[in-house]
């Protein structure tokens, strides 16, 4: 399905432009000259740009103008680049942000500390 808005009743047709090829997570994708990485990927139906570094939950772009940093990816080995502000260049290598190791965080330690925090909060609320 074509996800490009080829025609628009007021803005007219998309200006014809050069096609570029770039890579996302090792797979080739096409982009139009002037596409941001976020727009080029969405045009192919790719919404997920990274996972949350700790929880691994999926993330895409949110604000699309560089404010929120939700769309950070690795481009040509440079991590933390915003996909919504970066124009696609030929042969660019884009990788989605990955889950990072959290060696100091034991899965169960989180639960117990949360439990303790809430007990402490209850105690604090009781005792003022």
């Amino acid at each position: 399905m074509d996800r490009r808005i080829q025609h628009h009743p007021v803005l007219g047709a998309i200006a014809p432009g050069k096609t570029l090829t770039f890579q996302y997570n090792g797979k080739p994708y096409t982009a139009l000259h002037g596409d941001t990485v976020a727009a080029a990927l969405l045009a192919h139906g790719v919404r997920q740009l990274r996972v949350h570094e700790e929880s691994g939950s999926p993330r895409g772009f949110y604000c699309n103008i560089g404010h929120c940093y939700e769309c950070r990816v690795t481009i040509n080995n440079r991590p933390g680049v915003r996909a919504c502000l970066t124009l696609v260049e030929a042969d660019m290598e884009v990788f989605s942000g990955e889950r990072l190791p959290a060696p100091l965080k034991h899965p169960k330690a989180k639960d117990s500390s949360e439990g303790r925090d809430s007990q402490l909060l209850q105690k604090g609320l009781r005792e003022g």
Binding site: S57, R59, F61, C63, N64, I65
Partner: peptide, 13 residues
Amino acid sequence: TLPGVMSIGAAQV
């Protein structure tokens, strides 16, 4: 935080 959720301005751009 699910991919596909965006600000209204993001959809506009």
